[in-house]
């Protein structure tokens, strides 16, 4: 049957997240290599933002 092949990916994903939420699972922990890379970069960006904020606060202090 072709039904499984034509199921939109976003539907599958939202269903997976729904199931994960219900069971309290963290989907990110199970992401394949390619995905962890982009998650890692997002985390890294957030960490850089944190540094910017802290550096900005210090800017005019001695």
């Amino acid at each position: 049957s072709t039904t499984t092949l034509t199921t939109p990916q976003n539907e599958v994903e939202s269903l997976m997240h729904e199931m994960a939420d219900e069971s309290g699972l963290d989907l990110n922990m199970e992401l394949p290599q390619g995905q962890t890379g982009s998650v890692g970069t997002s985390v890294a960006s957030a960490e850089q933002d944190e540094l910017s904020q802290r550096l900005a606060k210090l800017r005019d202090q001695v």
């Binding site: 970069t41 890294a44 960006s45 850089q48 933002d49 540094l51 910017s52 550096l55 900005a56 800017r59």
Partner: peptide
């Protein structure tokens, strides 16, 4: 984008 943020922090640091 990450590199751009790193550049900002480089200048600030």
């Amino acid at each position: 984008r990450l590199q751009a943020k790193m550049t900002t922090n480089l200048i600030m640091a």
